[in-house]
Structures are given as structure tokens and as C-alpha cells.
């Protein structure tokens, strides 16, 4: 989804900076990134490095920050380990918190999008992941109010997306997968929701919404 988000933003004319754990050589060939930094967001020192790099690269002015990196494991609590719990909470909650803290001055007048999940209310199959996204939702809820008028903060909760995350999380493939949305369609709906001037602070990027977005695009493209 990060790749789709970057592509969609580049198409809309943004200069896009991106980060991830993989080496630059392992980035997908069709990535649109202007600059890339390899960093592991489960390590607070590397999160700090990402913030410094972003500030230096942009001269301290960021129009849009999308905190999308995330992971989780589809398994019961009995099958968890202390290390994995810490990793999921660090990447999905602590890193966004630290980045928001460091990037606040650069975001003045801009927008901060936190990528949550529909699991943020509850998910019996992945309790640790759900907890991390529930926490991110509560964080964004408070921050949106604190920063209102200065920085637009939105928490965007996608439903199931066909990105391979689900397989990486260890969930067996089933009929449900045919209902998964394409990352591109979700990326478009997510950006529309983040960039719109008006709208609630926390939004579910639902099936219907994505469908409506595609329909409107199709109609306007057809009319041109």
C-alpha cells in the first residue's frame, strides 16, 4: 500500500520521500520515490534518524506525511513472544508517536495521515495488532483536536487490502480474499480522505467508499 500511496502522490505532483527496512536495491522497479532512506522503525534511534533526514531533505516544510509502515501477526496471544509484541507496538504506535513529535514544526499548515485498520475496534485473531491500531486511533483522536487549525491530523482505517501483508501475518488464504481491495484503489481513497479540507478526524476506508471513488474517477475520466 505504501508503494501505491507513493505512486498516487507522485502522480498528483508531490515530490515523495520514502523509508523502509529494505535496501535501496530491493525497492520495486516501478517505485516513484525521489529519495529513500533505509531504516528500521522498531528502533527508536533509527526513527529519530528518519525524522532528521526528512527535515533536512525538505528544508523543514512537509505538506503531507503519511505514516503507513506497519505489521502484525495473525495468531492468538498464547503464540506471541515478548520480542514480537514489542516490535508490533513499536512500529505501529511508538514510531508514529515519535515521528509526530519530531515533525510537528515542519507540518504547520500541512496534513498528517495515520494508517490504522478496521481491526482497531477488536480482532480476536490478532489481538496484539488490534491493540496497536486501537492505540493509534486514540492517539490520532487526541492529536487531531490538539492540532486543529494548525495541522490536519486524520486516522484512516482501511479494510482488508490485497497487499500480501495478510500472508506475511500468517493468515491462511480463504474465500474472504476475493473481497480484498486493490492497494491502488485503497491508496486513492485514503489520499482523497486525507487531503479533503472537510471530513471527520477518523475514517474507515470502506468498500463502499473505495467503490464510490473509483466510480467518480471513471465518470470524470470518461467525460474528458
Amino acid at each position: 500500500m505504501g508503494l501505491s500511496l507513493a505512486q498516487e502522490m507522485a502522480a498528483r505532483g508531490y515530490r515523495v520521500l520514502g523509508t523502509g527496512r529494505r535496501a535501496p536495491a530491493d525497492l520495486p522497479p516501478d517505485h516513484p520515490l525521489d529519495t529513500y532512506l533505509q531504516a528500521d522503525l522498531s528502533r527508536p534511534d533509527e526513527v529519530a534518524a528518519v525524522a532528521d533526514w526528512a527535515l533536512a531533505q525538505t528544508g523543514g516544510r512537509i505538506d503531507v506525511a503519511v505514516l503507513n509502515a506497519g505489521l502484525g501477526y495473525y495468531r492468538p496471544l498464547t503464540a506471541e513472544s515478548a520480542t514480537d509484541i514489542a516490535q508490533v507496538l513499536r512500529v505501529n504506535l511508538d514510531a508514529p508517536l515519535q515521528l509526530a513529535h519530531a515533525l510537528r514544526p515542519a507540518l504547520a499548515g500541512g496534513a498528517l495521515g495515520l494508517v490504522g485498520s478496521v481491526a482497531h475496534r477488536s480482532a480476536a485473531g490478532m489481538p496484539v495488532y488490534a491493540a496497536s491500531k486501537g492505540a493509534l486511533d486514540g492517539f490520532g483522536r487526541a492529536l487531531a483536536e490538539e492540532w486543529r487549525g494548525d495541522v490536519r491530523v486524520r486516522v484512516l482505517h482501511p479494510g482488508p487490502v490485497a497487499t500480501g501483508m495478510s500472508e506475511r501475518a500468517g493468515r491462511p488464504r480463504n474465500l474472504m480474499d476475493s473481497l480484498f481491495l486493490s492497494p491502488r484503489a485503497v491508496a486513492i481513497a485514503l489520499l482523497d480522505a486525507l487531503l479533503a479540507r472537510r471530513g471527520p478526524d477518523r475514517q474507515v476506508i470502506s468498500f463502499l467508499r473505495v467503490g464510490r471513488g473509483l466510480l467518480i474517477r471513471g465518470l470524470t475520466a470518461g467525460g474528458r
Binding site: L97, A130, A135, D137, R141
Partner: peptide, 17 residues
């Protein structure tokens, strides 16, 4: 904000368990 985050995380965890 961080306190609210932690408590919402706990609530989701409780519902999930």
C-alpha cells in the same frame, strides 16, 4: 495523547481477548 493512545489500545486488546 499518549495516555489516551495507551488506554484505547488496552480497550481494543480486552475486546479482542
Amino acid at each position: 495523547a499518549s495516555y489516551a493512545a495507551s488506554k484505547d489500545g488496552l480497550a481494543t486488546f480486552a475486546r479482542s481477548l
